[in-house]
Design a protein around this nucleic acid. Structure first.
Lengths: 214, 214, 214, 214
DNA sequence: GTGTAATCGAGACGGTACGTCCTGTCTTCCC
DNA sequence: GGGAAGACAGGACGTACCGTCTCGATTACAC
């Protein structure tokens, strides 16, 4: 994972000495996700992660600055699994990604971790940047891919202005991700096919109207 | 606050003895908000809140079960300050409430607390219910009030089916609240007039389209 | 009990209003002894005593200054039960009182309380005085009675000098009480008939030798 | 100190990891004695000891199970300082050890601690055993040494029966230690040269009489 | 092959907050 | 005014984690 590489504490220039164990990394991230599932964010302790991973606490702190950073890396891997399979129409594609995203947010490790690190990030700028880099921005690709595909199909017109295009993509992204997260975690109601259909209808209608207006 | 009354640990039926100090409650909630501003959620300690409020830790634990419950009550009071002033049109009303909500989410105590308690609530059902009762459901009134007003103005048709009406209101609520929260806290981009205008345009277009379809 | 009267906090001059409940006193002292038996000194709490006695904490604090004072009064009543039955000879009388004293020290409430209040008294002069008045000095009567009886029997000569007589009585008292307490509580060995016989032999031999010397 | 070694919580077999700080032990025991002097047993807190010793509370609890155990170790070191200098005769030796013991009991840390831990030990068997091992039994050496020296001088006959010899030594020990402790702490009267002389006279007379009898 | 140096496990360290308990005082209503 | 009930400020308890440290024991590359 590219983002993870730059978010970890890097070894000092590699002059000599024993190299860091590669398997330890994977074990730690997996142990972190396990811990999130079983304990939730607030009861997850780094000592526990270390024990689960069969690793010393030192090893853990040598690579990550703290709980938040570790958890961001651990869940970022899951978000990277999201894809945008071609379902034939823009509406179907949106419904598909909404349901896929809801499924991801339904996993206990994602659920408890995402809101927690966002909460932490409100008082921690570097962490905020890291979340954006490792998780948020990486998912905008889905919006961009969906739009490109719809334009290929002729469902959406080409964007004349690249600045406005980016701004619209950001808006769409916040609306989709925000609505799904809010429905799933805050309102704590199920994101099912019915809801996805209604939401998609709303969104597509809005897109059409927005395309007509300046 | 009605919700707060039922969310606190209640004294055992009031048989005799010294009654609970009413001023202590207000002092504790205010101290909690202060602490959130200065320390953020994760560094906020109940000992610190007690000290700030000039109250013993015992008093605090006698009334709230833990940090999460206390913070929910403390920020719920802020959410209750949201209003829906009549700006003349549905579009203006929506823009107004979006900006007002964004202003509230911009406050450091709200920002750090909201995501944190939602994160906790993913592994704590009673807390989840409490957030819903004290915060979430109470703000749906804004959506309902906005729709009613738009219907009075003739901007929206009357709802034939009450079930469908409720479902639509929920959807609108998740879309508005979700998008604003996501923009403000996750994407960490400003929710300014420009963004509010664009979002409102999208939403109104979607509403119109959704009204046409079954 | 005379000593108890003066060791308690006295009501403010008796002007009017409801008089203090007399039965409460007995209930509190009994509850204290029960608590000592079940919990030991260090785990005994005044709240617990109040609950056991069916009395409010206020009532308790209105009458005693603290745990030590209360416990001194509670166990002093037990020490007052000691007697010196006439067993026919000085040796038998001493053996009898030694065994009786050992039996008293074997009771859990006495055992745990006596050492504890003495320990407290090392940093609390009023308490020290109170222990002396309520417990220690009151038991010297046994030594004096034993000596008087032995002199009546002709086993001991009359004391020519009253000052020296008092000093000797003090010494005897410290030797008897000290040896029994040390054997029972510090060495934690049984004070049985065999030990009492050996100890009495030693003491009587010493008394005879001391009587010969100036 | 041998006794202390076995009375502390021992580290788990020393497999790896950072070894326990040796200086911390000494600092803690010294801080405990200081605390006893300044605050007395009941007001001594382990938090305070930790602070005085410049040590974390964790370190303290890692090595001792509680206040009683710590204090036993702290005062045991003082009791080990007792010696039996040769003063030329059995009477002088006894007087010497009595005065030396009284001097030790006059120290505020010893005074407040000894009775307190004995009080605790009445409801705590392991603690009782520990007091016996670390303090009580270790001082019997003084009785044995005194008797041996007196036998060398010809002041006392050799013991024919070792069982009886041990029993007599125990009796002597309880009488000496008990009388001094009772005089000093319970009666709260000074153990001065005059008292020591009178007590020694009594004891030696008793010994002679006891030696004559079976 | 032999150094050299950063790694690893283990676990003790100084701190800090936890949530509970008890103290001794107070406030309220009931007798 | 006494008494039961119980809230109050305060402070210690013993536990749990934090993030750092000190160990002795591996590695792996550079010489």
């Amino acid at each position: 994972m590219v983002a993870g590489m730059q978010s970890r504490i890097t070894p000092p220039a590699r002059t000599g000495g024993r190299p860091r164990s590669a398997t330890a990394d994977a074990a730690i991230l997996e142990a972190t996700r396990q811990g999130l599932v079983e304990l939730g964010w607030s009861k997850l302790t780094l000592s526990d992660v270390a024990t689960r991973a069969g690793v010393a606490k030192t090893t853990l702190y040598r690579r990550w600055a703290g709980k938040s950073e570790l958890v961001v890396d651990a869940v970022a891997e899951l978000f990277d699994e999201l894809e945008l399979p071609d379902r034939g129409s823009l509406a179907a594609d949106i419904e598909g990604v909404v349901l896929q995203f809801a499924l991801l947010l339904g996993r206990p490790e994602t659920k408890t971790a995402l809101m927690a690190v966002v909460a932490e990030s409100t008082t921690d700028a570097p962490l905020r940047e890291r979340i954006r880099t490792s998780i948020v921005d990486r998912q905008k690709r889905l919006v961009l891919a969906g739009r490109a595909r719809a334009q290929e199909r002729g469902e959406l017109p080409a964007e004349p202005d690249p600045v406005s295009a980016a701004r619209t993509a950001d808006l769409i992204f916040d609306v989709i991700a925000g609505a799904v997260v809010h429905r799933a975690l805050v309102s704590a109601e199920p994101v099912d096919t019915e809801w996805a259909r209604r939401f998609t209808l709303l969104l597509l209608g809005g897109l059409a109207a927005a395309a007509d207006a300046p």
